[in-house]
């Protein structure tokens, strides 16, 4: 399966020391994982010069050298898609003063790669990109609640944006970790028990993955129920 991974998700795996679980997941499921040059720069080549982030960056660098993740160079086609994605996404929601710039090049690049390579999945931890594709009405509600003002949607742009990714599914690092556990892939790093699973999910949440406490608890309850 072809999949694209965003910088944030790479960082979550490296900062929680769950790169081995991730590696096992990728190999076990024959995932062909792609990242852009910019993601490589953002997750490895820039932070490796910063003492605070160098170890995390080195872990990701190792995944690149082990060919767990393939870095692809930028293309003209990719840049064209990026521009279109940015234009549509950033002209889909309006306040009284004008359009809200929601996405930046980083997210647009991941989406463009998914489009070009026909990826089935995008691994992304942050919620705005996910909401734009999966549930823009939810995003509208969030924007209205947070910004305390009415938000208008440009349905034409939004539809055109979503139509670019009709079959793209999105998953977070917590979803990958949970499936890796269900597939018995924790032994590359941790013991296979619910204690380790819970610890890994919480570590991922604290690393910034957009998942709620309720979601984690609901998932763990459903896992326990199914085991009985």
């Amino acid at each position: 399966m072809k999949a694209v991974i965003d910088t944030g998700t790479m960082i979550t795996f490296s900062s929680t020391c769950l790169m081995n679980v991730f590696r096992a997941f990728v190999k076990h499921n024959d995932v062909e994982l792609i990242v852009s040059n910019d993601v490589a720069n953002e997750s490895v080549w820039r932070p490796i010069k910063n003492k605070r982030f160098a170890l995390n960056a080195a872990r990701i660098k190792y995944a690149f050298s082990e060919k767990i993740v393939k870095v692809v160079p930028p293309t003209t086609e990719g840049e064209r898609y990026e521009e279109r994605i940015l234009h549509l996404a950033n002209n889909s929601f309006y306040t009284k003063t004008g359009p809200i710039t929601l996405l930046q090049r980083g997210e647009a690049e991941a989406l463009a790669l998914a489009k070009i390579y026909g990826a089935k999945a995008l691994f992304i931890d942050e919620r705005t990109t996910r909401s734009l594709i999966e549930n823009p009405l939810r995003l509208k509600k969030v924007l209205e609640k947070r910004q305390s003002q009415e938000i208008r949607m440009n349905e034409t742009n939004l539809s055109a944006f979503r139509e670019m990714f009709p079959d793209l599914k999105m998953f977070r690092s917590v979803d990958i970790i949970a499936l890796a556990f269900e597939q018995d892939l924790f032994d590359h790093e941790l013991n296979h028990s619910i204690v380790e699973l819970e610890a890994a999910l919480w570590a991922t949440k604290f690393s910034g993955c957009a998942v709620s406490e309720m979601e984690i608890n609901d998932y763990l309850d459903s896992y326990r129920r199914n085991k009985k």
Binding site: K169, A178, L179, E182, V211, S212
Partner: peptide
Amino acid sequence: MHDEEMESKGMRKRVDELR
């Protein structure tokens, strides 16, 4: 922050979809 807004698709559903 991530506890304040409900996700449209929960973790159980996503994990099943990924599988």
